[in-house]
């Protein structure tokens, strides 16, 4: 009695591995890069995908990234970036996910394909990997919820005017009473995050602001649980 057609099992196994390889090659080209100018973009991601969305605009533009189902139900976006000039947003996903990216005017968008595993490898080698970069024209009172904050993540930036980094509570107080709180910076600033709590960047004095959020090895060790 035999479980498998005995003459073919090793060959079928070999063909299966080749078919897996071909499926990966056919699914996406790692070097494929396309730039388009749109005010709305639909993005479908497979588990493990980590494309980077690159936005460029001569004029300040408001960019919002919604989960498809949130967009359809009129819920708030997962990322909202007002008055953007340049931005790069990594979009890692663990599951099948669809996003809708909406801009207040046509903006140049480039989608750079990538995989979560490749990024993890880089971090394991000790490289800090950019999760988000935003350059925006900051009017007084402009604020952004800093995207991709997690334990071990590092924020680095530069402000022409003055900005303050506020916790959720500080941000609410500022919205209600105008009382400026939190850590405030002019020029270069840097901060490491210890948890998932929301952090807001609020422009107190106008000027161009740019900042980047980096994933670090510490983040990988803090979040990594798996064998």
């Amino acid at each position: 009695m035999k479980l498998f057609p005995h003459l073919f099992f090793p060959l079928l196994y070999g063909l299966f591995v080749v078919a897996m390889a071909l499926a990966l090659v056919a699914s996406s080209k790692p070097d494929a890069v396309g730039t388009i100018t749109v005010d709305r973009l639909n993005l479908s991601l497979a588990p493990g995908d980590r494309p980077v969305l690159v936005f460029k605009s001569e004029e300040p533009v408001n960019v919002a990234v919604f989960r498809q189902r949130d967009f359809e139900r009129g819920r708030p976006p997962v990322i909202a970036l007002p008055r953007v000039l340049d931005a790069r947003l990594a979009m890692p996903t663990d599951v099948q996910e669809s996003y809708v990216v909406v801009a207040s005017r046509p903006v140049s968008v480039e989608v750079r394909p990538g995989r979560v595993e490749e990024t993890t490898q880089k971090i394991r080698r000790g490289e800090d990997v950019e999760r988000a970069y935003v350059k925006f024209a900051g009017d007084r009172g402009t604020y952004q919820l800093i995207p991709r904050v997690a334990p071990g993540v590092v924020l680095k930036g530069r402000a022409e005017g003055r900005i303050c980094l506020m916790t959720e509570a500080e941000f609410k107080r500022w919205r209600e009473s105008g009382v400026v709180a939190g850590e405030c910076f002019t020029g270069e600033f840097q901060k490491k995050f210890e948890d998932f709590a929301d952090v807001y960047l609020v422009v107190v004095e106008p000027g161009v602001v740019e900042y980047a959020v980096y994933a670090t090895l510490e983040m990988l060790l803090a979040l990594g649980t798996c064998g």
């Binding site: 196994y13 591995v17 390889a21 990966l24 699914s27 497979a46 493990g48 979560v116 595993e117 798996c226």
Partner: peptide
């Protein structure tokens, strides 16, 4: 949430295991 879901054909670790068996 903790371990991420990756399609088998896109997971480098899967190719490692397929290699071990092969």
């Amino acid at each position: 949430q903790d371990n991420r879901l990756v399609a088998p054909y896109a997971d480098p670790l899967m190719y490692l295991i397929l290699g071990v068996l092969g």
